[in-house]
Design a protein around this nucleic acid. Structure first.
Lengths: 184, 184
DNA sequence: TTGCTCCTCACGTCACGTGAGGTGGC
DNA sequence: TTGCTCCTCACGTCACGTGAGGTGGC
């Protein structure tokens, strides 16, 4: 069976040595044995475990969450990832909002070094250029709202529409009649 | 001239008292005078300054960045907000990626508690239901790429397309002929 | 006297990063 | 002997939050 030194294992996963030292210290991933000189030796089991840890970390889960998820068979315990998913929704909205605050700031600083940003006008231009007319756009809002309401809301914010206005649009979109099945 | 105690000022801006204590300690926003009992007294000048601090913080700028921006006339120094803007781009992509990792995780945990997420299929369904056919969608990609390439890329990632595939689509979209001006 | 606000330390947070000072292995 | 890797503390980070222990003002 292959074994690994701490730096070898770190390199394999693109981590730093101090990360693994830290994981050892907090008891998340301990070296099962030491050489006579006290060097950590990791085995295949730790390799596999670290693989899972990295997957969870890649999803942005905290080490505490990872600790709870590790012993699970990965079939249950959907609640932690789901919570994280919702937290991600909110974080993304926050960051988007920050972007729009910056855009407003830069606009006032008149040297309008145009940031490459998608706004309402550009978006409707794009749809129009692709051949959508006003009624098609209306249907588009209606369908978007019906099939993915949250994503619709998020999209509206992302093109610089305020939360209030976005909620208005959603309300309006919910009253748009459903597209009749295609005549074929 | 109106003055404020530390808690009054904090409440006005939705901050905590300890935040203002901290700003005082690091020299970002100091109380210009104290009462005989040593209580901090803030004046209008600090109110105005805190207003700006909150605006910058609302854009997610670090206190170090805020410190540099404060003395500026707000007309120059666009570089710090621009850097922040780009950092926000990247952060949003990272978080989106984390969302898709979670979606993949939950799918494997077969109890597919459907997350409300916009993916490729739903998106094309929406466009189709709004009346777009394949050639209109092609034009849409072409226009999106031409007018807001970065946003196009980000959008593709947001509906679960991999970075590589997204870049392929962008390449392809760049070869789509420009929509002729509307016949009117 | 009783609450309320204020004060100043000092320590905790999260996931590591960065030395300092020292040892093992080829 | 020379580099390289490894070891164990201990302290720093960022923007506060949370007590503890004490004082001022109505």
């Amino acid at each position: 069976m292959r074994t690994y030194s701490i730096s070898q294992l770190a390199r394999l996963f693109g981590l730093s040595r101090s990360t693994l030292l830290y994981y050892d210290r907090i008891g998340l991933l301990c070296a099962p044995e030491r050489t006579s000189a006290g060097y950590r030796r990791y085995s295949q089991a730790e390799y596999k475990k670290l693989e899972r840890i990295c997957r969870f970390r890649g999803a942005g889960l905290s080490l505490e969450d990872v600790r709870h998820l590790l012993p699970s068979k990965e079939t249950s315990c959907a609640i932690i990832p789901e919570k994280r998913f919702k937290a991600l929704e909110e974080q993304i909205l926050t960051l988007r909002n920050q972007q729009h605050i910056i855009i407003a700031m830069l606009k006032k600083m008149k040297n309008g070094a145009r940031l490459p940003v998608l706004d309402k006008e550009i978006w409707t231009d794009i749809l129009a250029a692709a051949g959508m007319d006003a009624s098609a756009m209306k249907r588009w809002h209606g369908e978007f709202e019906k099939r993915a309401s949250k994503a619709h809301f998020e999209f509206l914010l992302s093109i610089g529409i305020s939360e209030n206005e976005a909620r208005q649009i959603q309300k309006w979109a919910r009253q748009i009649p459903i597209t009749p099945p295609k005549k074929s």
